[in-house]
């Protein structure tokens, strides 16, 4: 069973936000509009975070693209009262939108704030609504539930189905999330962290590799390569 993980090279990333846009199109997250975005309510499964250090004129900005960290020890799943969020058999943390009661305890427990709440029923402008991803697995979520990045889990299913249809064994290279596929600078790598021959395995062991809030022991499966 592959242990799906991601490596993001911060040296290659130039914060173009195409990962954010690709994620939005793939996963049908609703546009929030300037008012709600200003109130920190935009739903962005992938976000490019700006860490600002120091004061003018000695300012340093570190831009970090942040999908769900897909922790091996996810604090969010420990606190869910109804098992609406859980690590599935592929090791990916997902949300059952039909079961979630909207208590937001997972969102409070997550140290990375990757969990987004539907404050209102999602809405799309008419033109955008026609172009929603038709996959039922990413059908628009109702109001009052939590949603988050799933490493585009619907693509994993598609890849497995495709391999089965073509009568060949499923290969880890068949599957990659939308953000990885679209990344302009090829800064994102995706694959099996347990396969010593995979690129992500080797990169995750690079001396440049680090993880966010590593000291918390959540064991994220998203690695970053330090900016040089």
């Amino acid at each position: 069973m592959p242990r799906w993980g991601m490596v993001i090279d911060l040296d290659k990333c130039f914060a173009c936000q195409s990962c954010t846009a690709a994620c939005r199109m793939e996963n049908n997250t609703p546009p929030a509009g300037p008012d709600q975005t200003g109130r920190d309510r935009a739903i962005l499964w992938n976000e490019v975070l700006a860490f600002v250090h120091g004061e003018y004129p000695k300012v340093e900005v570190l831009l970090v693209p942040r999908p769900c960290q897909q922790c091996d020890k996810p604090p969010c799943t420990y606190v869910c009262p109804v098992k609406a969020t859980y690590k599935n058999e592929d090791g990916i943390v997902v949300v059952d939108y039909q079961r979630c009661i909207g208590c937001r305890m997972c969102a409070v427990a997550c140290p990375y704030q990757v969990r987004y709440f539907n404050w209102y029923a999602p809405e799309w402008p008419a033109g955008m609504r026609e172009h929603l991803n038709p996959d039922p697995e990413v059908a628009p979520r109702p109001k009052g539930v939590i949603e988050k990045c799933t490493f585009c889990i619907q693509r994993l299913r598609h890849a497995k189905e495709k391999a089965a249809a073509e009568g060949r064994p499923f290969n880890a290279a068949d599957y990659q999330p939308a953000c990885v596929q679209t990344c302009t600078g090829h800064a994102r790598y995706f694959g099996d962290l347990d396969d010593p021959n995979s690129l992500v395995y080797q990169l995750s062991r690079s001396p440049r590799a680090f993880r966010l809030l590593e000291e918390m022991g959540t064991e994220p499966k998203v690695y970053y390569l330090k900016q040089g």
Partner: peptide, 18 residues
């Protein structure tokens, strides 16, 4: 609660880990 209509899930699917 965001979904008051699903509050009974706490009884149907409740788990003591939370």
């Amino acid at each position: 609660l965001g979904r008051l209509d699903r509050v009974l899930n706490v009884i149907f699917f409740g788990r003591f880990q939370s």
